Amino acid sequence: MPLLVGSGGIVVAGLIAAQSFREGRWSGVGMVVPVFCAFLAACGVLAVSWPAVRFRRARGLTYLLTDRRAIIVEGSAVTDARLAAIRSVEVENSGKPIGSVIFLDRPAPPSDSGPDMIRDGFIGIADAEAVAQEMRRLQGIAS
């Protein structure tokens, strides 16, 4: 909610500044004010739309945990890992309602900078600690 209110305020501030510029109140400033107004409005629109973009991406993402595999389905791409082959199961943001269970190390795409490996797993899930405990329990059974 604070994000919505703040970004809405940025959009309104940009529109008010643009209107006052149009009325000639800031006539000696040149192009600085219109560019600043457009920047404020664009930042506000992006901030308002960001949760919708994240929600849309999350709708195409599915996490599955079976007695032998941990599976991530993102669109048509499927990543799976045998539980017996997973070396470590780590929890990020433990104790919070939303956390992540990290258990995959994948090679990063080739680039000039950045890490060589990407840590991945079940990102942004409810009760991550319980999911990690269940994965560890199933690992003990599978090995």
Rank of each mutant, 00 (worst) to 15 (best):
Asp120Ile: 01
Ile71His: 06
Leu65Glu: 04
Gly14Arg: 05
Val48Met: 15
Val45Asn: 02
Arg57Glu: 15
Ile71Asn: 06
Ala142Thr: 09
Val5Ile: 13
Ile86Thr: 02
Thr79Gly: 06
Ser113Met: 00
Ala85Ser: 14
Ile141Lys: 12
Val12Met: 09
Cys37Gly: 14
Ala41Asn: 01
Val48His: 06
Ser7His: 12
Gly75Glu: 06
Leu61Asp: 05
Ala42Phe: 14
Val45Gly: 06
Glu90Leu: 10
Gly44Lys: 04
Val45Phe: 08
Gly8Leu: 10
Ala47His: 11
Ile141Asn: 04
Gly140Tyr: 02
Thr62Lys: 08
Ala85Tyr: 11
Pro51Trp: 08
Ala126Pro: 02
Thr79Asn: 10
Phe39Glu: 01
Asp112Pro: 00
Glu74Gln: 10
Lys96Ser: 13
Asp105Ser: 11
Ala42Leu: 15
Ala41Leu: 08
Ser27Met: 01
Leu64Tyr: 07
Arg56Phe: 14
Ser27Lys: 11
Pro109Gln: 05
Asp80Trp: 12
Leu138Pro: 07
Ala13Arg: 03
Val89His: 02
Ala142Tyr: 07
Asp116Pro: 02
Ser111Asp: 01
Ala85His: 14
Ser143Thr: 09
Thr79Leu: 12
Trp50Ala: 15
Gly28Cys: 01
Ser113Tyr: 00
Ala77Val: 11
Glu134Val: 04
Arg57Phe: 13
Gly8Asp: 06
Leu61Val: 04
Ala58Phe: 04
Ala81Gln: 11
Val131Ser: 02
Ser27Ile: 06
Gly124Thr: 08
Phe122His: 01
Gly28Leu: 07
Trp26Tyr: 15
Pro110Trp: 03
Ala13Ile: 00
Ser94Val: 09
Ala77His: 10
Ile16Cys: 11
Gly6Arg: 00
Ala17Gln: 09
Ala17Ser: 11
Thr66Asn: 08
Asp127Glu: 14
Trp26Leu: 15
Thr66Asp: 08
Met1Asp: 09
Cys43Glu: 10
Gly121Thr: 06
Val53Thr: 12
Gln133Asn: 09
Val32Ser: 10
Leu3Ile: 09
Gly8Cys: 07
Phe122Val: 10
Val101Glu: 11
Met1Val: 02
Val33Gly: 11
Gly30Phe: 11
Cys43Lys: 00
Ala17Trp: 05
Asp116Ser: 04
Glu129Ile: 05
Ser20Lys: 10
Val11Trp: 02
Tyr63Val: 00
Tyr63Cys: 05
